[in-house]
């Protein structure tokens, strides 16, 4: 086995801690249920590629409580250095405490590029830090490329939810901030030979300005008419468990619907029947769970941008109109899907 890169890695490690003048590509991690979120690994993979072309180092930043153990995951995904801010005040994401740690760190390190996941946390932190540090920000990046002469990152981001993409760069201002769209970049190979000793940061606790009062008692989100819903999860006779269908709709922030079979089963009302004689829909995503897909149903979803069909019968007509076909029993797919979407 060729282990020559180990020397290289160790030499690099040494230099990382001693590097003067900052720079580097920094990735701020999202921690979900005590694990590093996939989008952080994806961002590290993208950062690694950029850093190799630029001759720069990749740094990961972990904030939370009891998160120091996750540092090795960041090394494995491509980080050359990891900074950890471990403090009870950081146990849950709150803007001001996180901002304080990151602003102090990034002011001192003067990175070239700072990446976040395009998550609730990243979307709050990235623009505030960009504004504070005079940096440019492109959100929801789905691809990155380099303008090497000026060391400028060019980021692709979706327009009208992905009808097409625009490419933008911030040629003058530094740091260049990016939020990385979850799922857009591959998860890098996790190199278990990569190891490191993270640097622990001093944390000065700061009061959050936004306080959680509690559960929003009695709040009901507004009902979007089915015809205008962006995401629809629809059930058919073969759905099996309608509860799972409803949970999938919630997880995707979408509306529940069904075909005539679902209405006959008493799962949905007549106003939720997707059918040219009922409601015609045009969502970004339509998930047909156990729907066979007769002519009237399939014609009513012609305007959908992306159709997923889950049905055990390979000859079901729904597969003729679907973009993504899963020949399977929904009852076997949905529990695993719901579990994966949580992460």
């Amino acid at each position: 086995m060729d282990v020559s890169y180990l020397d290289l890695l160790m030499a690099q490690q040494e230099e990382v801690t001693e590097a003067e003048g900052g720079g580097g590509i920094w990735v701020v991690a999202d921690v979900v249920d005590g694990a590093v979120a996939p989008v952080t690994l994806e961002a590290l993979g993208a950062a690694r590629t950029l850093a190799d072309a630029l001759g720069a180092y990749v740094y990961g930043v972990l904030l939370g409580q009891g998160v120091a153990g996750l540092a090795q995951t960041l090394y494995q995904a491509g980080a050359d250095g990891v900074r950890v801010a471990d403090h009870p005040a950081l146990a849950r994401f709150a803007l001001e405490p996180y901002l304080k740690v990151l602003a102090d760190l990034l002011e001192a390190e003067q990175p070239e590029v700072v990446m976040f996941g395009a998550t609730a946390q990243g979307q709050e932190l990235a623009p505030r830090l960009a504004q504070r540090m005079g940096g440019g920000l492109v959100e929801h990046a789905t691809a990155v490329s380099l303008d090497e002469t000026t060391r400028t990152v060019q980021a692709t981001f979706p327009i009208y939810g992905g009808e097409y993409f625009e490419i933008a760069a911030c040629p003058e201002a530094r740091p260049q901030f990016l939020t990385i769209e979850p799922g857009a970049f591959p998860v890098p190979f996790m190199d278990t030979y990569r190891k490191g000793e993270p640097t622990m940061l001093e944390v000065e606790p700061v009061e959050p300005a936004v306080r959680v009062v509690g559960a929003a008692e009695g709040f009901e989100p507004p009902v979007v008419p089915l015809a205008q819903a962006a995401v629809i999860v629809a059930a058919g006779r073969q759905a099996g468990d309608f509860e799972l269908v409803k949970r999938l709709a919630t997880a995707l922030g979408g509306r529940v619907a069904g075909d005539r079979g679902a209405r006959d089963a008493g799962w949905i009302g007549p106003e939720q029947v997707v059918d040219v004689r009922g409601v015609t829909v045009a969502p970004q995503v339509y998930v047909a769970v156990g729907i066979r897909g007769d002519t009237f149903h399939n014609a009513a979803i012609e305007g959908a941008k992306f159709i997923v069909a889950i049905h055990p019968d390979p000859t079901a007509p729904i597969f003729e109109v679907a973009d993504l076909c899963l020949e399977a029993d929904p009852q076997e797919v949905l529990p695993a899907l719901l579990e994966t979407l949580k992460r």
Binding site: V285, F306, F319, D323, L324, C325, A328, T340, L341
Partner: peptide, 27 residues
């Protein structure tokens, strides 16, 4: 590209489907 079929065990299909959905559902 219509009619892409996912292969594998239900759990593997679920993983691939989750990836595809994450790319398309902005929350």
């Amino acid at each position: 590209e219509r009619g892409v079929r996912l292969e594998g065990l239900p759990a593997e299909m679920a993983q691939a489907l989750a990836d595809a959905l994450r790319q398309r559902v902005c929350r």
